[in-house]
Design a protein around this nucleic acid. Sequence first.
DNA 1: CTGTTAGCGCATTCAA
DNA 2: TTGAATGCGCTAACAG
Lengths: 348, 348
Amino acid sequence: MKKKRTSIIDIANALDVTPSTVSRALNGGGKVSEKKRLEIISLAKKLGYRPNPIAKSLLDNRTHTIGLIIPEFTHHFYSCLLAGIESVTSQAGYQLLICTSNEKQTQEIKSTQTLLDARVDGILATISKMNDKFEHLQEVMDSGTPLVLVDRYTEELDTPYVVSDDFNGAFSAVDHLCQIGCKDILHLKGPENLSTTFNRFMGYKEALRKHKIELKEELVLESGNKDLVEKIRFCLTNFRVDGAFAYSDYLAFEIYKVASKLDIPIPEKLSVIGYADEPISSFIHPTLSTVNQQPFEMGALGAIYLLNKINNPDINMEIKSLQTKLMIRDSCLKPKLLDEQEVIKEVF
Amino acid sequence: MKKKRTSIIDIANALDVTPSTVSRALNGGGKVSEKKRLEIISLAKKLGYRPNPIAKSLLDNRTHTIGLIIPEFTHHFYSCLLAGIESVTSQAGYQLLICTSNEKQTQEIKSTQTLLDARVDGILATISKMNDKFEHLQEVMDSGTPLVLVDRYTEELDTPYVVSDDFNGAFSAVDHLCQIGCKDILHLKGPENLSTTFNRFMGYKEALRKHKIELKEELVLESGNKDLVEKIRFCLTNFRVDGAFAYSDYLAFEIYKVASKLDIPIPEKLSVIGYADEPISSFIHPTLSTVNQQPFEMGALGAIYLLNKINNPDINMEIKSLQTKLMIRDSCLKPKLLDEQEVIKEVF
DNA sequence: CTGTTAGCGCATTCAA
DNA sequence: TTGAATGCGCTAACAG
């Protein structure tokens, strides 16, 4: 059974003053005689008094709690996101209430309800993949609860967001492949209909254009279908592919597998870059070059935006496309003419 | 600005009844004329009424919130643990308030304070590595807030816990190595002073004993010191090591590296088993056999214990040493005489 | 069946 | 400087 905690009333009774006086003494605000103030404070400490935030919340309609909706816990990306968020909110004295959507809209809707019911001061959300309607989030905004989107966003919601700069992330990767001399660069696209898939593909194209390399459609593969491995094998066998850029690290690993079977050495004959900087990338052989999206920073910045909006509702819409970091590892040929220093710096 | 939510008083005024009546109608408990009941319910729905849990909490001193303290977010193990916990608590209608300790005692102490202040109904904690004092957790228990320990525990705290069965986990791994014919089995120990290190070592020894294999001290390596790689190399070179069991998957990878340099093929000449079933294990080549600790189940069970204790404070002390799952992958020789079915079953 | 009263813990009026 | 009163939203005990 939970023990009753000492309240300001207990202190008031013990000292023969009113709760008001105790409240004033403890909050420093009002005028209390120094003597009483000290008495009260010392007794409070002795009794282990801790203000009841529930009562406070009821009074001023703020909970100092922010709600978080993420698709899932078990991807490294979200763990980092979470860590970034937590680092900011805990610092600011806010609690974190966490819900998952499992990438399902129904659960996401439930989660927003839960958080709204809990009277959180604001909500940080990564909208789930399969979202077509955003009424539940619009409802959050209409209720006056600040909302900030992280990692994924939609133009249908007029609210701050922090995402990753997929275009430039992809661009920097393919640009690097070009710089080390790749001419025929395979691209494995991501899931259809995702803005990230589109933007990374755009980055790929733009880098080719910069280096005056013609885009060859046969070198761009959709990763959705089952015969992906077969298609990769076909490409590696029939075209003189010397570079590859994949939508994700996992897709890059598929390339590894095929290349291994075909006895194509990486990076000697084929330089590969993935995306997301999964921890696995540094363990696989050869270590995989990839694009780091800075999930921790993304979470932290999202949390900062949210706190800003909570504390100043009229604040200008803040949006940010976070810079990515190109992580060059052993899966790429070392640059020939390029200033090595530059690359090395990027790694750290 | 957060909009004022409709309260039971708003409904009462609109319908010219008292808040009590509305409360009764909405909660179904009391006696309300059917007519009024329907009126009230319909208006409540129309106004989007949602009860304010803050007020309820103030009243009955329960928040329907449980606090969680974990060392960190970014290890896959904790992500799974978290997912397991969340699956149970959300199901049961509880919110999750999350704090991290970063493996530091000072932060862990702060976290307990935060959670106690927030009046959570119970706390689920993975105590941080560097804990020597447990007063803060004892204080939690003294306050009457149910506490359940997960993954790590201490005998100093008389409270329920869920951990992993390290002894049998290690035993099953080494037992398997013996069954596939290994005679000289290297063991890489974990960090000193950790019960897990001790228990896994015990499991290793017991398995050897079962198979009447003499324990050779030179085949047991402390992993703390820097020249671990050198020591592994020495072992692999000078003794005819044909099996290896490591405290963690990461340590197993160290064995991979050395074996690769020495041109010792895995699993043909050396079978390796790690511990923890990191996702990386399935991606590395060859895929690494390992021991799965079922972190999701661990979290889920911990949450169940906690909810039990919250709802029935007098419940018997519940403790559980969770069974591990041996994951046999390509890093082990296929069994010769052993009934293959059995092994395959273990994998799934 | 329904209204009145009281109180959960606290801060903020307004009086004194 | 201090006390009394009020209310945040809700439920429960008691009256009617």
